[in-house]
């Protein structure tokens, strides 16, 4: 070891202060709390989907909500895990789930092109998209805070997973609230929330978690 390195190690050791480890479970709890608060706030402010209030369960809405919830879980767990560096850590499941969800808008687009346009309820769709993007912000902030306390060594992937998780939480909240239930509406405007956050995550959040 060189003298310069030896001196540096002495300096680093001299300035050591006790610092508790960043725990994965703390990140998971914080992200879960953020997701629940987001959903409660959206439903509290905008109300529950009328069909759910009346106890009528639309299968498509339920399946879509469940897929968003699964995506939020998979991407959220991946993002939180990325706060702790590790070689060989598994990743990528959330991304495949998101790719599978992109089949929704792809199929809706094909239906539109072959002359069977479904009503995408565009007038409320834009509001769903904007509300959903806004509602995702809190979860994104909580996960980014956890990542910044840690040391993500794959910042692009961490940003993307954070965006997917936050967008999926926003999409769950909006799907439970909004009255639109056509396939095209859910495909374009609700999956669109996740797609928008995937972009934000990859392009913006990745920079925030780089160190």
């Amino acid at each position: 070891m060189t003298e310069r390195l030896d001196m540096m190690i002495d300096d680093l050791a001299a300035e050591l202060a006790p610092q508790p480890a960043v725990r994965e479970r703390d990140g998971r709890r914080a992200a879960l709390a953020a997701a629940l608060v987001t959903i409660a706030l959206v439903i509290g402010l905008l109300g529950l989907r009328p069909q759910l209030v009346n106890g009528v369960a639309d299968a498509l809405v339920l399946v879509t909500t469940a897929l968003f919830a699964l995506l939020a879980l998979a991407a959220g767990l991946s993002a939180i895990r990325m706060a702790q560096p590790a070689v060989g850590a598994p990743r990528g499941g959330a991304l495949w789930l998101f790719v599978a969800m992109l089949l929704f808008p792809a199929i809706a687009l094909v239906e539109h092109l072959v002359g069977r346009p479904a009503d995408a309820q565009a007038q409320i769709g834009l509001m769903c998209l904007l509300n959903g993007v806004g509602a995702s912000l809190f979860t994104a902030a909580v996960i980014v805070r956890h990542l910044r306390r840690g040391a993500p060594v794959l910042p692009e992937a961490a940003g993307l997973c954070t965006g997917l998780a936050a967008g999926a939480v926003g999409a769950v909240a909006i799907t439970l609230e909004c009255g639109g239930s056509s396939f095209a509406h859910l495909a374009f405007f609700h999956v669109g929330i996740v797609a928008a956050w995937a972009l934000i995550g990859r392009l913006v959040l990745a920079r925030l978690v780089r160190w």
């Binding site: 480890a21 725990r23 702790q84 560096p85 306390r149 040391a151 060594v153």
Partner: peptide
């Protein structure tokens, strides 16, 4: 980033990831 190490986990995969970064 020493607080990102969880002592319940193996050490070298953690440090190797930082070194690779």
């Amino acid at each position: 980033k020493r607080s990102s190490y969880d002592p319940d986990r193996p050490f070298f995969p953690w440090v190797a990831a930082i070194a690779r970064y």
